[in-house]
């Protein structure tokens, strides 16, 4: 691949230091795994790992889209709300309106993609900063989800609407089933990771994302439709959030308007831990995969060690800062 910068290091004892520096967050993940394996006897079991994969799937799916957004020098703060709206709409359609699974799922995903499209149009055509547009959307879309559900879980016996049925089995399978022992959410996340990798590194559109994020003016002067790229990236972000919404509703066997709160920050953390430049133009999906896993492993490990949830938040926050500080330091180290 021509867009990847050649950075190969031969593994020799002498080079191990450089290798650790270049690997960055990968070695962070490995050290966490080693630490938890020593501290907890349950950590290194197959069951626990399947659990981690199931827990981290939703985060990973949305983080894939966030990677594309951040590489294009944008940021999407509305992904959590969009996920909730898509999931709630699908659940409402299936359980209250009696829609079949496919139709309900299509509705949820389409509306989510439309939210992303709206973000893209506002940002590209309205010349509004990415941060502001998606911050506004974060509030507004969550509000719409609350209006649709009346603030109650879906399905619920307390709604004025007559309940036509429970959530379809296919939907629950999406969130809780498994294929040959591998959790379905993990499979879906894997597929999304591969698709995103393909888009970013193999397509002309992906190359345009890097160009727009790296130097918007240069991209425009090379004849790239900058507005079009932005709009498409945000639309994909909404679409991914919609898919993640279905998975999350299936896992919880219920939808509610307040689900996935704070997901935007977790996805941004995963992307940044993965070494993608927050100012755009460089990064990739492999880093995000590691970043997402790191966040998942950390949460799981702290749970196993019986760390209080309040403390978990504190530890989580500081670990993210530490990883990024280390990452910045190693970049400077490499460039000199």
């Amino acid at each position: 691949m021509i867009d990847r910068v050649e950075e190969k290091v031969k593994i020799t004892p002498k080079n191990i230091g450089t290798l650790v520096l270049k690997g960055g967050s990968f070695f962070g993940l490995i050290s966490l795994v080693v630490a938890f394996s020593i501290l907890s006897p349950f950590f290194l079991t197959l069951n626990n790992w399947l659990n981690i994969l199931r827990q981290v799937a939703v985060l990973l799916i949305v983080a894939c889209a966030q990677t594309m957004v951040i590489v294009s020098a944008g940021i999407d703060l509305s992904v959590g709300s969009t996920l909730a709206l898509g999931g709630c709409l699908a659940a409402v359609a299936m359980s209250y309106w009696g829609w079949p699974f496919l139709l309900g799922a299509l509705l949820g995903v389409t509306v989510s993609a439309l939210v992303g499209f709206a973000n893209g149009v506002i940002i590209a055509k309205g010349r509004i900063p990415d941060f502001i547009s998606t911050l506004g959307m974060l509030g507004a879309v969550r509000g719409i989800a609350l209006l649709i559900t009346g603030g109650l879980p879906v399905p619920s016996h307390f709604t004025a609407t007559t309940l036509r049925g429970y959530l379809p089995r296919v939907l629950i399978w999406l969130g809780s089933g498994d294929i040959g022992g591998v959790p379905v959410p993990a499979v879906i996340a894997g597929v999304m990771v591969i698709i995103t990798w393909f888009i970013l590194s193999r397509t002309a559109f992906g190359r345009s994302i890097y160009a727009v994020g790296g130097n918007r003016e240069a991209a425009r002067e090379s004849g790239i439709n900058v507005d079009g790229v932005k709009i498409l990236v945000y639309t994909l972000s909404g679409l991914y959030a919609g898919i993640a919404g279905l998975v999350l509703v299936g896992r919880m066997n219920s939808a509610n308007a307040l689900m996935a709160e704070g997901l935007e920050l977790q996805t941004i953390a995963a992307v940044v831990i993965g070494g993608t430049n927050l100012f755009g133009g460089e990064g990739g999906i492999l880093g995000t995969l590691i970043g997402g896993l790191l966040i998942g492993v950390l949460g799981n490990g702290l749970n196993l060690l019986d760390v209080e949830p309040f403390w978990q938040r504190v530890v989580n926050g500081f670990i993210i800062i530490a990883v990024v500080v280390f990452d910045q330091w190693r970049r400077r180290k490499i460039s000199t």
Binding site: D3, Y210, G214
Partner: peptide, 17 residues
């Protein structure tokens, strides 16, 4: 500097248009 994408490779910069 306004026309180059510094994060990309020499090749990608050449083929950008």
């Amino acid at each position: 500097r306004k026309a180059l994408v510094f994060q990309l490779s020499v090749g990608a910069n050449i083929t950008l248009a």
